[in-house]
Computed example of a mutant assay.
Amino acid sequence: MHDANLITTAMANRIERLRAQKEAKSQKTPQEVAKDMIDAKQRQKKRYDEEEKKLAQAFEIFVDEQLAGMLAAEDLGGPVVGDMMDVDDDMLATGFTQQGRLKTSKQQISEPRRQRRLDEIWGAKATTEEGEHLTEIDAAGIEFRELIQKLFTSLAGSKSTDAYVALERESAASRFLIRAKIAQFHPKDARKLRLIDFGRELDD
């Protein structure tokens, strides 16, 4: 009975607020109502823009400080993303065994060989426009960001579920998105990838 009374009171208060809002709107001119609606939309857009900036900053920090190193390790034959945390440049320079474990020897590969390895895996992404060589972590981070951007652009520009992006190669970045259930391969072509549109029904 106590709960029923609380619910009844809450509903009565809600009805009264709605009635007051309706009466307030009825006393306004159409121009005033339109202005209120525009102001409300603008406030909503501003709030969404601020949230988007916060999410973008969090995404950049996550990629730079955590994900890029793990992606690079997997691309170099190391453990899959999530199995080894806190990957650094020295670990990547040392390399991994055929079983995907970090080599116990602290002897790092030569710089020319390391650069060839970078070029073979990441290609142009391993070098800046000024010709400066990047680390494996930097290259993996760039590749992941570019892939995410392509996937978002493809999905946003498509009115169908065929918003697939052709992959340059099967990378740790694409495999990570698949395992995280953020993206999916084309059912007939594993060289194509698209984001899962959570606003639509998932493919079987």
Rank of each mutant, 00 (worst) to 15 (best):
I182F: 07
D162F: 09
I137H: 04
D83N: 13
A156G: 02
G141M: 10
I38K: 06
K125A: 12
Q42F: 04
Q66L: 03
K181A: 11
A172Q: 06
L6R: 02
E129Y: 01
A140S: 15
E143R: 14
I137G: 04
Q115F: 08
E16Y: 04
T97R: 00
A58V: 00
L76H: 03
Q149I: 04
K35D: 10
R175K: 15
D119W: 04
Q57E: 14
E120K: 06
M84V: 06
T128N: 05
P79G: 02
I178G: 03
L6Y: 00
I142L: 15
A156V: 10
G77E: 05
R145E: 09
T94F: 00
E32G: 03
I196P: 06
L55G: 06
F176I: 08
Q27T: 08
R175M: 13
T29D: 00
R17I: 07
A166M: 13
L147V: 09
K41A: 11
F96H: 05
L76R: 09
V81A: 11
D197H: 05
S26Y: 11
D204H: 10
V63F: 08
Q66H: 14
K41L: 12
I15Q: 14
K35F: 07
S158I: 02
A68E: 05
G123Y: 08
D3M: 12
I182K: 00
L134Y: 02
P112Q: 04
K46R: 14
D89R: 13
L155R: 14
